[in-house]
Design a protein around this nucleic acid. Structure first.
Length: 310
DNA sequence: ATGGTAGTCATACTA
């Protein structure tokens, strides 16, 4: 059984790439984030034609989470069961005042039972700048997530909570903590929020089989960050112990972060349970020497710049 | 030193 998560950065813009990846990796369950669609706009045919059901929870212009499953999908929960979210679709009046930021009014959580496991697809707030209202809202959102996990995901039951957590759990999960995102994604309060999920008993599926550093799921579109492997591991599949015991393989498919049409800025993360599924070559080993050469060139350029200005 | 790209919709915004 193959499970996966992928922040697709617009399902409308990425549909062709998502179809390609479903055929390439053949996941049984794929959690998606940032579909940027309303529930009415979601294309169903590309999924049903491949034998998948699609459970979608979207507010429109931003956010949007989904579960793609060929193992059925029942007992759907959206927004932690706290009620409907706003409409940010075309034509909707949306406040851009930062004091009005409310992550609980955005489509950031959907959950369903697929193949006897409760799957939850989450898209954590970005936070933008440490100390900003967006950062405070991010921490509050993680508090709500932790409470929902404590109340609704008993660790003795099979469950997967995956998605874009917007947190790099340790310094091994970020190319340079000091340069990351104005301090967000790596700050102690964010890492503590992530750590509380692990303390509850959830297991990081990727780290179950990979100890390497320099393995990331997100790279900024700008300045050749992907090609230098300056990224962060911020997408995760967290597993309760009954699922974690079944982990046979995990991979980040960096091939999906390349090529035409334009890729998402995130790569898919997959975990195989009960044995390895369809083999994929994610291309990490062959890329290592190119990363090293480009990073060395980058450091030389940096040194020349500081020479010239001192 | 700054900004660099890509998504939304059609302008600044979000990331």
């Amino acid at each position: 059984m193959r499970i996966a998560t992928w922040n697709v950065n617009s399902l409308k813009a990425r549909l062709e790439k998502v179809e390609w990846w479903l055929d390439r990796a053949q996941p049984d369950v794929l959690l998606m984030q940032e579909t940027k669609l309303t529930d009415q706009e979601v294309p169903l045919m590309p999924f049903t034609a491949r034998g998948y059901e699609l459970v979608h929870h979207g507010d429109g212009r931003w956010n949007g989470v989904a579960i793609v499953s060929r193992l059925g999908a029942s007992d759907v929960i959206t927004n932690f069961g706290d009620g409907p979210v706003r409409d940010s679709g075309a034509g909707a009046a949306v406040s851009l005042d930062e004091e009005d930021f409310n992550p609980f009014d955005e489509a950031r959580m959907v959950s369903a039972v697929c193949g006897g496991i409760r799957f939850t697809s989450i898209y954590a707030p970005n936070g933008r700048v440490v100390g900003s209202p967006f950062y405070v809202g991010k921490l509050a959102w993680f508090e709500r997530l932790a409470r929902w996990v404590a109340e609704c995901l008993p660790v003795a039951e099979p469950a997967v909570i995956g998605g874009d957590f917007n947190v790099a759990p340790t310094d091994a999960d970020v190319w340079a903590a000091a340069r990351a995102h104005g301090g967000t994604h790596v700050s102690p309060p964010e890492r503590d929020a992530f750590g509380r999920l692990l303390a509850h008993g959830l297991v990081d599926g990727y780290r179950r089989v990979h100890a390497e550093t320099g393995r990331y799921t997100w790279w900024d579109y700008r300045a050749g960050m992907f090609h230098k492997n300056y990224g962060m591991r911020i997408d995760h599949l967290l597993l309760t112990p009954p699922v974690a015991e079944r982990v046979a393989w995990a991979e980040i498919d960096r091939e999906a972060r390349k090529g035409v049409p334009i890729p998402s800025d995130h790569a898919p993360l997959l975990v195989d349970l009960d044995g390895r599924d369809v083999p994929i070559d994610a291309g990490w080993e062959g890329a290592e020497s190119r990363f090293r050469a480009r990073q060395a060139a980058d450091r030389r350029a940096e040194a020349r710049r500081s020479d010239g200005t001192s």
